Simulated assay, not measured.
Amino acid sequence: MREQSIGVESAPTTTAVEKGHIARFAEAIGDDNPAYTEGTPETGGIVAPPTFLRAMRAVRPELPFEIPFTRLLDGGSDWEYFEHVRPGDVITAVGRVEDIRERTGSIGQMIISTIKVTYRNQAGAIVATQTSTSIRH
């Protein structure tokens, strides 16, 4: 299972970033920072809130086998940010299976997977990465 899974990548998912989408997202999360609506000298124009990338469609690699469990727990995510996301950017996300393992715990047999999603802008620069853990049981 590990040999078949580690390194498997998702198809790329691409999203064009719009100024209005950034403003609506900031409003939805209750953040009135002017960097998200008007821009500031420090940011060099309008930028998206760091959590904006969560609004992209989910990116999941297709595993080459069926996981025999139907229940899913979110084991958390770690984010790293490298560049601002700005209006006009075209962000492409690709998920990669970093690890998958079987374990027995208090809820019984589980499969724990770690997926790393890399977000790149139109210039190919990495703007952020998200490493997520999922627990199926």
Results as ranks from 00 to 15, higher is better:
residue 43 T to P: 05
residue 2 R to L: 11
residue 124 G to H: 11
residue 109 Q to P: 14
residue 35 A to E: 00
residue 41 P to N: 03
residue 10 S to P: 13
residue 43 T to L: 12
residue 50 P to F: 06
residue 118 T to A: 02
residue 93 A to H: 06
residue 107 I to K: 09
residue 20 G to T: 02
residue 63 L to D: 10
residue 20 G to K: 04
residue 51 T to A: 15
residue 27 E to D: 12
residue 91 I to A: 14
residue 82 F to R: 13
residue 53 L to R: 06
residue 22 I to L: 03
residue 89 D to V: 03
residue 5 S to M: 14
residue 94 V to C: 04
residue 29 I to Q: 06
residue 49 P to W: 08
residue 130 Q to M: 12
residue 22 I to S: 04
residue 36 Y to T: 05
residue 95 G to M: 07
residue 17 V to I: 15
residue 48 A to R: 04
residue 97 V to R: 08
residue 10 S to E: 06
residue 64 P to L: 11
residue 87 P to D: 14
residue 46 I to Q: 07
residue 100 I to K: 01
residue 82 F to C: 08
residue 71 R to W: 09
residue 128 A to V: 06
residue 3 E to V: 08
residue 56 M to P: 00
residue 131 T to S: 10
residue 123 A to T: 10
residue 43 T to F: 10
residue 33 N to I: 03
residue 83 E to L: 15
residue 117 V to I: 15
residue 1 M to W: 13
residue 134 S to F: 05
residue 73 L to Q: 06
residue 30 G to E: 02
residue 135 I to Y: 07
residue 33 N to P: 09
residue 36 Y to L: 01
residue 34 P to N: 08
residue 81 Y to H: 15
residue 64 P to W: 14
residue 50 P to A: 08
residue 5 S to N: 13
residue 135 I to N: 00
residue 9 E to C: 13
residue 22 I to P: 04
residue 39 G to R: 06
residue 111 I to M: 13
residue 120 R to E: 11
residue 104 T to Y: 12
residue 30 G to R: 12
residue 4 Q to S: 03
residue 101 R to H: 12
residue 107 I to C: 01
residue 35 A to L: 06
residue 136 R to V: 00
residue 27 E to N: 10
residue 61 P to F: 03
residue 105 G to D: 07
residue 104 T to G: 09
residue 115 I to L: 01
residue 104 T to V: 14
residue 72 L to W: 09
residue 57 R to M: 10
residue 31 D to C: 00
residue 105 G to S: 02
residue 85 V to C: 04
residue 16 A to I: 14
residue 59 V to P: 07
residue 133 T to C: 15
residue 21 H to M: 05
residue 86 R to L: 13
residue 13 T to A: 15
residue 4 Q to D: 03
residue 118 T to H: 03
residue 117 V to M: 06
residue 68 P to Y: 11
residue 21 H to A: 12
residue 111 I to F: 10
residue 105 G to T: 04
residue 40 T to P: 05
residue 83 E to G: 10
residue 54 R to H: 12
residue 126 I to F: 11
residue 134 S to I: 00
residue 28 A to C: 00
residue 100 I to E: 06
residue 60 R to N: 02
residue 125 A to K: 15
residue 24 R to N: 07
residue 16 A to Y: 09
residue 32 D to M: 02
residue 5 S to E: 03
residue 34 P to F: 03
residue 67 I to E: 11
residue 35 A to H: 01
residue 10 S to C: 14
residue 67 I to R: 13
residue 81 Y to G: 10
residue 118 T to G: 02
residue 34 P to L: 02
residue 20 G to V: 05
residue 4 Q to N: 05
residue 33 N to W: 03
residue 16 A to E: 13
residue 72 L to Y: 07
residue 119 Y to N: 12
residue 97 V to A: 12
residue 44 G to P: 05
residue 8 V to E: 05
residue 112 I to D: 06
residue 61 P to V: 03
residue 71 R to V: 06
residue 70 T to L: 15
residue 86 R to A: 09
residue 35 A to F: 03
residue 74 D to L: 00
residue 29 I to M: 09
residue 92 T to I: 02
residue 33 N to D: 13
residue 7 G to H: 10
residue 16 A to P: 10
residue 47 V to G: 01
residue 12 P to S: 08
residue 87 P to F: 07
residue 129 T to C: 07
residue 78 D to H: 08
residue 111 I to T: 13
residue 69 F to G: 14
residue 75 G to P: 12
residue 14 T to E: 15
residue 52 F to V: 04
residue 41 P to W: 06
